[in-house]
Design a protein around this nucleic acid. Structure first.
Length: 641
RNA sequence: GGCGGUGUAGCUCAGUUGGCUAGAGCAUGCGGUUCAUACCCGCAGUGUCACUGGUUCAAUUCCAGUCACCGCCA
């Protein structure tokens, strides 16, 4: 590897998605590598972000009565929150709707257009008008129909800009022949090379049928196609092409972690784009596998999508991180199940690691008043453990050099097992009772040294666990600041602070029962109980509900829950007061079409007259609510029956 | 159909350029221990190394074929 630096990226995630285990997987992996290399003193940069352009976003926004930007602003938070919860420490988070990105997309487009790597042509394909998408030959249904809506496809010709990918087939092959490690794992490398050998077609990179994207500077009727736009984030985030930008420092020492579904974009189109810019292609694209859930493919319709927030809350972020990287070799597909996660927690985290720390500190407390004594003469078994620890440090480094997270963790747990065995062999409790202070001190000191190394090695994988071990061992500073995990860094005479166990064992019977109870509850939701007496249709008709547009929102003074909202009903304007301030910022409300009761008797709230009431759904616990809106365009004042 | 990969213990997988009784973890059984989160340590296993044939003193490892599964072929 180059010592130029270590630039690691995740894909930028599409804001239309809800974060799931796949997003968490890639990002945790990148975080571990980033933390690890940083700790080894390497110049490291970690980038993640979101992809916010494109037709799907545009349509999803319309369906929810938002602008595309509003939708993006709202959902980007899902990702940023998840990264906080999972302890992800990125250096930068880029959004493709940021000015710093769009500017670079336009710059690159213009540059490539000027030098002839982009040209104007026409795109011909089979188009589904209702779905507004082109359908490739391979995905068509019987008799040229749309795979989604089953309707007939139409042949369409559209003006489009093309990237001259064909020109880069040979340079790409040359590059890959010289750098067989540039696409990993090996199987993917073979696929990519044989794909390129089959010849490359120029790529359509602009659309005139959609508007949510970066406009082509030379021809604003066109919007840059979302993939061309998105890939550029890896450079735009580094301040390309500005002089003195980070890209000069980190390019091409970039390592792209991607799912196997998007490897072609990253190892064919993207390197070609980069070559067209006169830069060297990325040093590595690593395609990891996919997760199934309980043996089945994950899908929204099956309802088996794993929610990383839920896993982190229920089992802890560190345990979840550990499981993802330990269970399956990076690059292969894996299967997720809560059962397997719980087993890992119990056997690896609780029994092996947590218990090793716990029993060691317990003996320090019990036999040495909480103070780790100085080591005296070393016996062969002490030296063996020391050697083992030093070898583990090297082996973990080596494994991570090839992104073999599972190997690294196996090595580390081998050291933990050695520690447990060492205790059984040396029997420090017997030394304590027999009063062999010297030997006891040496044994406990050796264990403390070992645990210190374990904490350091564990930290990139499980940052808060490393921190907790550090603290319990009574060490100063922080494990994510120590750059060389050398033996002997544990000072004699240190007072330990034995605290709560790192990972409580999960009682399997109890866990099963709780799980069943949860499943039951999902099937038979709890009755909230606040039911009303039966009403007739005439009773209901007395309530006049209409569609209203929110035109202005301002807080009511001295009332932290209230807004004064100006509404437009089409035939008249009026003001209402509403207690939704803690759930919606004003800018989220203005422009929304909501549902109001118009014939409610006006009332004065905090000195402000309220002429009507809006409708919202409230969660059982009252901790959130959602406004009622209409699900398609509707004239103001429309009556609701 | 073309190219590539995989098939090893109940489960998940390691097996470097062919060579000592084929390994690890988990799960199972038995024993030890009591500092510890009923934890840890030790021992015990079971395998026609997919199938058939070939090369070789020797093949899980190399070669050919068969079967099964998987990936890529915009």
């Amino acid at each position: 590897m180059t010592d130029k630096g270590f630039y690691i990226t995740t894909p930028i995630y599409y804001v239309n998605d809800v974060p799931h285990i796949g997003h968490a997987y890639t990002t945790v992996a990148a975080d571990v590598l980033s933390r690890h290399h940083r700790l080894r003193g390497r110049d490291t940069y970690f980038l993640t972000g979101t992809d916010e352009h494109g037709q799907k976003i545009q349509r999803a926004a319309m369906e929810r009565g938002l602008t595309a930007q509003e939708l993006a602003d709202r959902t980007v938070v899902n990702f940023q929150d998840l990264w906080k919860v999972l302890g992800i420490e990125y250096d930068d988070f880029i959004r493709t709707t940021e000015e710093r990105h769009e500017r670079v997309v336009q710059h690159i487009f213009s540059k490539l257009l000027a030098q002839g790597d982009i040209y104007k042509g026409s795109y011909e394909g089979w188009y589904c008008v209702p779905c507004e998408t082109y359908v490739p030959e391979s995905q068509m249904g019987e008799g040229r129909t749309c795979p989604d809506c089953k309707r007939k496809l139409e042949k369409m010709t559209e003006e489009s800009y093309f990237f001259r990918l064909s020109k880069y087939a040979d340079p790409l092959l040359e590059f890959y022949e010289a750098h067989p490690e540039a696409v990993q794992p090996r199987g993917r490398y073979n696929e990519i090379v044989s794909f390129i050998r089959g010849g490359l077609m120029d790529q359509s990179i602009s659309r005139t049928t959609i508007s949510w994207g970066v406009p082509v500077p030379e021809n604003p009727r066109h919007v840059v196609y979302v993939w061309f736009d998105a890939l550029i984030n890896y450079l735009s985030a580094l301040g390309y092409p500005d002089e003195g930008g980070l890209w000069e420092r980190y390019w091409p020492a970039v390592h792209h972690l991607v799912g196997k579904d998007i490897i072609r974009f990253h190892s064919v189109i993207w390197p070609a784009m980069v070559m067209a810019l006169g830069l060297n292609p990325p040093v590595m694209v690593f395609a990891h596998g996919w997760w199934t859930v309980e043996g089945e493919k994950m899908s929204k319709s099956k309802g088996n999508v794993v929610d990383p927030f839920d896993m982190a809350r229920r089992y802890g972020a560190d345990a979840f991180r550990y499981f993802l990287l330990r269970e399956v070799p990076f690059g292969l597909d894996g299967d997720f199940s809560e059962q397997a996660l719980v087993q890992r927690i119990n056997s690896d985290l609780a029994n092996d690691l947590g218990n090793l720390l716990h029993r060691t500190l317990q003996m320090v407390n019990q036999f040495c008043d909480g103070e780790v004594p100085a080591s005296k003469a070393l016996h062969p078994e002490d030296e063996a453990l020391c050697r083992e620890a030093e070898e583990a440090v090297e082996a973990v480094d080596r494994a991570l050099e090839s992104f073999a997270f599972d190997e690294a963790l196996k090595v580390l747990w081998g050291l933990v097992a050695r520690g447990n065995k060492y205790i059984d062999e040396t029997m420090p409790w017997r030394l304590g009772k027999e009063g062999d202070r010297d030997r006891l001190g040496t044994v406990l000191g050796t264990l403390a040294q070992t645990l210190r190394i374990v904490a350091l090695l564990v930290t990139p994988f499980m940052p808060s666990t490393g921190q907790r071990m550090w603290q319990q061992l009574g060490l100063r500073g922080a494990p994510d600041k120590i750059t060389s995990p050398a033996w002997g860094g544990y000072p004699a005479g240190t007072l330990v602070h034995k605290g709560e166990v790192l990972f409580p064992r999960i009682d399997l019977d109890l866990w099963q029962k709780e799980r069943q109870a949860r499943a039951e509850e999902d099937k038979n939701p709890k009755d909230p109980g606040d039911h009303e007496a039966e009403v007739t249709i005439d009773d209901f008709r007395k309530i006049e509900l209409r569609v209203a547009l929110v035109t202005a929102v301002e807080p009511v003074p001295k009332a932290d829950k209230l807004y004064k909202m100006s509404l437009d009903l089409g035939y008249e304007k009026r003001e209402i007061v509403s207690g939704i301030r803690e759930f919606y910022p004003p800018e989220d409300l203005v422009g929304k079409r909501i549902v109001v009761i118009c014939n409610l008797k006006p009332a004065k709230l905090r000195g402000v007259m309220s002429c009507g009431m809006l409708l919202a759904a409230e969660r059982f616990d009252g901790k959130n609510l959602a406004l009622l809106t209409v699900d398609r365009d509707m004239e103001l004042g429309a009556r609701i029956h």
